[in-house]
């Protein structure tokens, strides 16, 4: 392993230890398991609908609203909005930024660690939900169900971590109020705008994440048209195009962050304001 790759791995390991030493990933993991448990309870105890296909709709609904649109924003927000600032305020950033590793690579290593942990929490939560929902139905979870129903949501969740994580990390570099701004942007702008029909929703990441998540929704769950109509997401784009759009946004945000982190001065326990 080259010196820089090894150094980045060391930074990523430090970041993971820092995050796992705090409450955030554990609380978020517990929330994800709570949602999974809710899936079990709903499937087990809710009155049977007239149309059995409605269970499929319920499955999609819970994954969409509780995972993709809630935890899918909250998890990367809490893990990346303070990516540099948390270390700065704890006084440990100086150890990383006085090393012979370029600051952008330090940032990138931290972002990859935070993104990886966020994606793992979301994926594990969704898998737990899938299993719990199947168990609630009295069936054993099937591998086929995982690939046709769950994987598009997991992919959308991972893409969401990339997109939101990169955006929140960038905002967190620029301002001390990254968490507040992230909440405003993530839960107000993204969710409100994403539900406005026509062009406006195309300005949100959520629109593209939904497109990926629902790309295979017709496979045995319910009528695709019916699900889309019920969710109010009729103008989805092809999954490949949607994924590419999210990755481009994430890439631009990461590049902007790398430029910013190489220009911003961090010293002691604070960011140095401009001269």
């Amino acid at each position: 392993m080259s010196g820089q790759a090894g150094a980045m791995l060391a930074v990523a390991e430090l970041e993971l230890r820092r995050m796992l030493g705090g409450p955030r990933p554990w609380v978020l993991g517990a929330l994800a398991l709570g949602v999974a448990a809710l899936g079990f309870v709903v499937r087990r105890f809710a009155p049977a609908p007239d149309d059995p296909a409605a269970w499929g709709f319920l499955y999609v609904l819970l994954l969409m609203f509780l995972f993709l649109q809630t935890l899918g924003i909250l998890v990367p927000l809490l893990h990346t909005s303070g990516l540099v600032r948390d270390d700065l305020e704890e006084g440990t950033l100086v150890y990383l930024f006085t090393r012979p590793l370029p600051k952008p690579l330090v940032f990138l290593a931290k972002l990859l660690a935070a993104g990886g942990l966020s994606a793992a929490i979301l994926a594990a939560g969704m898998l737990a939900f899938h299993v719990a929902f199947a168990l609630g139905a009295g069936a054993s979870p099937s591998g086929a169900g995982v690939t046709t129903h769950l994987l598009p949501f997991v992919a959308a969740g991972a893409l969401g971590v990339a997109g939101y994580g990169a955006l929140f990390a960038f905002v967190g570099l620029l301002t001390r109020r990254g968490l507040v701004l992230g909440i405003v942007y993530g839960f107000v702008s993204e969710l409100v705008l994403a539900n406005i029909p026509a062009v406006v929703r195309q300005l949100t990441l959520m629109h593209y994440l939904r497109s990926v998540a629902l790309s295979r929704v017709a496979d045995g769950l319910s009528s695709e048209e019916e699900v889309r109509e019920l969710l109010g997401v009729l103008d989805l784009v092809p999954a490949g195009q949607a994924a590419l759009t999210v990755l481009v946004v994430a890439g631009v945000a990461v590049l902007a962050s790398l430029v910013a982190v190489s220009r911003i001065e961090f010293a002691g326990e604070q960011q140095v304001e401009g001269d």
Partner: peptide
């Protein structure tokens, strides 16, 4: 050790 690695030393 971690900071030695961040400085480019192998593990």
């Amino acid at each position: 050790t971690a900071l030695g690695r961040v400085s480019g030393l192998p593990r």
